[in-house]
Simulated assay, not measured.
Amino acid sequence: MNHIFNISAILLSAIERYQYYRARDGFAARVAQRYFILKHLIFTIITGSDISPFAKIGKRLFLPHPNGVIIHKDAVIGDDCIIMQQVTVGQLAVGNVPKLGNGVYIGAGAKVLGPISIGDRARIGANSVVLSDIPAGKTAVGIPAKVVNS
């Protein structure tokens, strides 16, 4: 069997474990929190990403190339999403942040900004700038991103 050293899995695991122990009380939980936040910091530096340990990240988020990925602390990401390199999921100057549904794909270099919702199984093209809601199952491309016929 071929085992691959998956640095993004280690980073996401550190975030998941930190969130788990953050919800617990006691001395052991505080020690574990510090360990996993340190692990998160180390792998954040290695990957050049900035994924907040406070973001609500669903199960099986896949970051094939985690370099330069930025996820705001208030972002909500559904299950089974794929986020490519250099993607930003964050807020505009002031306001809320995006909510991604399940199975969302975000292409390399895309920016998803503001208080918007991305529907389940939506696709966002590389280098797109998404500033408005994208319905479920639709594809958005361009600057600013517009839904195209799929």
Rank of each mutant, 00 (worst) to 15 (best):
Met1Gln: 11
Met1Asp: 13
Asn2Val: 12
Asn2Leu: 14
Asn2Arg: 09
His3Ile: 00
Ile4Glu: 14
Ile4Leu: 10
Ile7Phe: 05
Ser8Phe: 05
Ser8Arg: 06
Ala9Cys: 11
Ile10Tyr: 01
Leu11Ser: 06
Leu12Lys: 06
Leu12Ala: 04
Leu12Met: 13
Ser13Pro: 00
Ser13Thr: 05
Ala14Glu: 10
Ala14Val: 11
Ala14Tyr: 07
Ile15Pro: 06
Glu16Tyr: 15
Arg17Thr: 10
Tyr20His: 15
Tyr21Ser: 06
Tyr21Arg: 01
Ala23Ile: 03
Asp25Tyr: 08
Asp25His: 13
Ala28Ser: 07
Ala29Gly: 07
Val31Ala: 08
Ala32Gly: 04
Gln33Pro: 05
Arg34Lys: 11
Tyr35Gly: 05
Phe36Ile: 03
Phe36Arg: 04
Ile37Asp: 03
Lys39Asn: 04
Leu41Ser: 13
Ile42Gly: 06
Ile42Cys: 09
Ile46Pro: 14
Gly48Trp: 11
Ser49Thr: 12
Asp50Leu: 12
Ile51Pro: 09
Ile51Asp: 07
Ile51His: 11
Ser52Asp: 08
Phe54Asp: 14
Ala55Val: 02
Lys56Ile: 05
Lys56Gln: 11
Ile57Phe: 13
Ile57Ala: 06
Gly58His: 10
Leu63Trp: 00
His65Ile: 09
Pro66Gly: 12
Asn67Gly: 11
Val69Asn: 11
Ile70Val: 15
Ile71Val: 15
His72Arg: 01
Lys73Ile: 04
Asp74Glu: 11
Asp74Pro: 00
Asp74Tyr: 09
Ala75Asn: 09
Ile77Glu: 10
Ile77Pro: 03
Asp79Cys: 07
Asp79Phe: 02
Ile83Phe: 13
Gln86Tyr: 10
Val87Ala: 12
Gly90Phe: 08
Gln91Cys: 12
Gln91Asp: 14
Gln91Tyr: 04
Val94Leu: 14
Val94Arg: 14
Gly95Val: 06
Asn96Pro: 10
Asn96Val: 01
Val97Glu: 07
Leu100Met: 07
Gly103Cys: 08
Val104Pro: 03
Val104His: 08
Val104Asp: 08
Val104Lys: 06
Gly109Tyr: 08
Gly109Ser: 09
Gly109Arg: 10
Ala110Thr: 01
Ala110His: 01
Lys111Ser: 04
Val112Ala: 08
Val112Trp: 05
Leu113Met: 15
Gly114Asn: 07
Gly114Arg: 03
Pro115Cys: 02
Pro115Val: 04
Ile116Lys: 01
Ser117Asp: 08
Ile118Arg: 01
Asp120Ile: 03
Arg121Asp: 02
Arg121Trp: 00
Arg123Thr: 13
Ile124Lys: 09
Ile124Asp: 10
Ala126Phe: 15
Asn127Trp: 05
Val129Trp: 09
Val130Leu: 00
Leu131Gln: 00
Leu131Glu: 01
Asp133Gly: 08
Gly137Gln: 10
Lys138His: 11
Thr139Asp: 02
Ala140Asp: 13
Val141Met: 05
Pro144Asn: 09
Pro144Phe: 00
Lys146Gly: 02
Val147Asn: 00
Val147Gly: 02
Val147Trp: 02
Asn149Ala: 08
Asn149Met: 03
Asn149Glu: 15
Ser150Cys: 09
Ser150Gln: 13
